[in-house]
């Protein structure tokens, strides 16, 4: 199935005509989804015949920088039986304060268990909050680390456990 066909099918399944937006210059084909339809679209992608995206390959958070005031969550899906791939993109507002977490977006861990750790990583490094996540803690950094390192305006803390961080 090509990207345009997947888009048509999705619009019809989720009744979101005109709300899905193609993102140019992407590989695989990427759809921008409004936040409020994100979960429904993912559910349809996994369970509908002909689509059947059974594998969540990757979930990444992207910080677009303080000037844009936006963050993105990009989900890369693939279907093993149909051998097609798709990426979804959700935009959310970016807090001006580097220490502050973002608004919450729905967690996909109820649909694909693989999303669990990927979302924890996005939370850990970018401070993106996921709603209804079973266990949203830091995963790679220590639990008492301050700030979200992959934010473009990240500043390291001065000291960690009495050790100088910035030299």
């Amino acid at each position: 199935m090509t990207g345009a066909e997947i888009k048509l099918r999705l619009e019809e399944l989720c009744k979101v005509q005109g709300l899905l937006e193609d993102v140019p210059d992407t590989n695989p084909f990427t759809l921008k989804v409004p936040k409020e339809h994100y979960l429904a679209v993912c559910q349809a992608l996994k369970h509908s015949e002909g689509l059947y995206f059974d594998q969540l390959a990757c979930l990444s958070g992207v910080d677009l920088g303080p000037e844009s005031g936006l963050m993105e969550v990009v989900v890369h899906l693939s279907s093993i039986p149909y051998a097609h791939q798709l990426a979804l993109k959700v935009r959310l507002a970016r807090p001006a304060d580097p220490q502050e977490e973002t608004e919450a977006i729905p967690s996909l861990s109820g649909i694909w268990r693989a999303a669990d750790w990927h979302e924890r990583e996005a939370y850990d490094l970018l401070g993106i909050r996921f709603e209804n996540h079973p266990d949203l803690r830091r995963i790679l950094l220590p639990a008492d680390w301050i700030g979200f390192p992959l934010r473009k305006d990240y500043r390291e803390q001065e000291q960690y456990h009495g050790i100088k961080v910035i030299y």
């Binding site: 993102v23 210059d25 590989n27 990427t30 390959a57 990009v74 890369h76």
Partner: peptide, 9 residues
């Protein structure tokens, strides 16, 4: 590279 997004596996 020109402005783009790519997932390679």
């Amino acid at each position: 590279p020109k402005a783009q997004e790519l997932y390679v596996r």
